[in-house]
Design a protein around this nucleic acid. Structure first.
Lengths: 345, 345
DNA sequence: TGTGTAAATGAAAACGATAACAAGAAGCCA
DNA sequence: TGGCTTCTTGTTATCGTTTTCATTTACACA
């Protein structure tokens, strides 16, 4: 069996308390004793039992990360790994462990939540990509007075989150098209159960408004974040009386589907139809033509969310409880902007 | 503060022991008492403190999943999410929690391991994609007599793993090309610090041998799993005196890079150069032409590894400690096999 | 009615650590 | 030397469960 603090104490001929002191704060222990204790620790290969410690100090050094059910369709490409990497990097720095909760159905999701709240073995929670209907769960977290941070903006007072400015990002994408001279700009939206879906739509409208272009619902189709959805949405747009000359899609997956539809129709990108996507998938840079996109700061989101949670757990003050990161427009071939640049120059 | 078993006991006017019995095994409790206890549990919204329980029963219901350092380059696309999904689905079924360890450097990796082994708060470990030099850690796990399962084949006696047959998969890819009539088949390998890198190379050679084609080192270049590496490796192949008419790449990322090199050279796929990749990335299906690939059974790997670990933890017998899953050849456009099929028919 | 067995319950110990408190040793100053 | 403070150490309680063991109650049977 593994050795306990008692074994160390016996070997070093001191009390458990002294051993504990040496291991933890080192306060007021004669250096001679300290040496003896550390020697015993080394000799036995002792490490504290983290569970016993967690029970006593009421702190487990574990944070839960909840990935919502059925979220795969948003997890285009490197989102998930990137986010987790951002989170773990920070957690590792603080010697915190990551407890990953991934649920594949609504009922699993509900159960995961209540387990997390009730079993009391978690110091805090990071909730990834909350949907509107996660509000109930978020309120539960709050009532349980468990520190938590959302990854993704959420429209609730005084809730801590790290998000990126989807609306602004979408707006900049559309403005990019407008600057290039496009006027009939279509939009393939995502679903509206995700905050990002709504924000991107608003960003689209904001850009139009800023440049005094009229919003025309004929140019807008609702997608569902998937490639197939993007394909169908684009087909729909192409069959309308008023066909856009440029399209902004709410994510990359749909953009890829849309590209397929455009090509099948015999149209060329960007000559006949310019495109901007949203996301940070490899896909976007590898299809032909490579897609101009609005890039999400995924790694940073994860890292900052983790940092914020660490502060919450340590009862430090949060200066900025609602962080909005900037998106970045990555210009590639799908808008013909290189040509445009030459024209400008 | 949260309620404890003592509060429930007081409310139900029984002892803690009885409450514990009701919650756990239900043995020998009068149904009348049981009702009273359950009522108290509900009234207080009591759930057991999992840490206290873990301390007492020496079982935490947590399994660690270790993702090696610097592995991103192997994590083409949906590998990581798919694998984790496979793992969590099974763990959820058994009410086990997932503790994710992701290390971004060798030192973090080493530390993560020793933490995991020492802090004794974990019932078992799943180690993803072990590299050859992980052997030391694997031996440590074994010495600690902590149940563990590897995801990915590992050449060590009596070690439990779930892998897929990389060699056979590679072989079938190359045989596919051979069947289509290609004789000068090039190979862009991965690095050899991963077992899969070696296996794929062997599969390549095995296919040649089976069909009495001579192995020619002129047709082989070493890549590094990345797109850039694939690009450069392909350039190298194209500049040799003896240029292959078909190429098998050890993963998709490199295939994509290779495609780029081929196109830049003005060659057409599959007319001038056929291609087969390895992996299960979206990328492969979306570049032009879509890539024929050998698909890894990622979800299944995760699920089966988790199942095996659960059995190990429960001291059940493992009938098959070393599972090799089958890969699947997905035929798309990059080999011109449609034409070939017509010719056959 | 007494006896033996099974069912139902509870008291106390244990899991392995830390915290609160107490107390002895040592140093300082008058 | 006595009294005070500071340093160092140990004893005991505690975190919230489960387990062991003992005890009480219920029931069947002679």
């Amino acid at each position: 069996m593994a050795f306990t603090i008692e074994d160390v104490a016996r070997l070093a001929e001191v009390s458990k308390t002294t051993v504990s002191r040496v291991i933890n704060d080192n306060s007021n222990v004669k250096s001679e004793t300290k040496v003896r204790v550390l020697g015993a620790v080394r000799e036995l290969g002792y490490t504290p039992n983290s569970i016993a410690r967690a029970l006593r100090i009421r702190k487990s050094n574990v944070v839960g990360v909840i990935i919502p059910r059925g979220i795969e369709y948003v997890f285009s490409d490197p989102f998930f790994p990137e986010l987790i990497k951002g989170i773990t990097t920070v957690l590792n720095l603080h010697n915190l462990n990551l407890h990953l909760v991934m649920s594949n159905s609504e009922s699993e999701h509900r159960q995961a939540y209540s387990n997390l709240l009730k079993t009391k073995h978690i110091d805090g929670v990071i909730l990834v990509c909350p949907r509107f209907d996660d509000k109930q769960y978020i309120l539960k977290l709050r009532r349980a007075s468990l520190p938590f941070v959302l990854v993704g903006r959420f429209p609730l007072e005084k809730v801590n989150y790290v998000g990126y400015d989807s609306k602004q990002g979408a707006c900049s994408a559309v403005e990019h098209l407008i600057r290039l001279g496009y006027k009939q700009i279509g939009f393939i939206s995502g679903s509206f159960d995700l905050i990002g879906g709504v924000d991107r739509f608003e960003g689209y409208k904001m850009a139009l408004e800023r440049h005094s272009l009229e919003y025309d619902s004929e140019l807008v189709t609702k997608g569902d974040w998937t490639r197939e959805g993007g394909y169908e949405a684009m087909c729909e747009l192409l069959n309308k009386a008023k066909v856009p000359t440029a399209v902004f899609t709410a994510n990359d997956q749909m953009a890829v589907g849309a590209v397929k539809a455009i090509k099948e129709k015999g149209l060329q990108i960007p000559k006949d139809m310019a495109m901007v996507g949203f996301g940070d998938t490899q896909l976007a840079s590898y299809i032909e033509p490579s897609l101009t996109i609005v890039k999400e700061p995924t790694y940073e989101e994860g890292a900052m969310a983790a940092e914020m949670l660490v502060k919450l757990i340590n009862d430090e003050e949060i200066k900025e409880p609602q962080v909005m990161l900037e998106t970045k427009l990555i210009i590639r071939e799908s808008c013909g902007s290189k040509m445009a640049k030459i024209m400008k120059g």
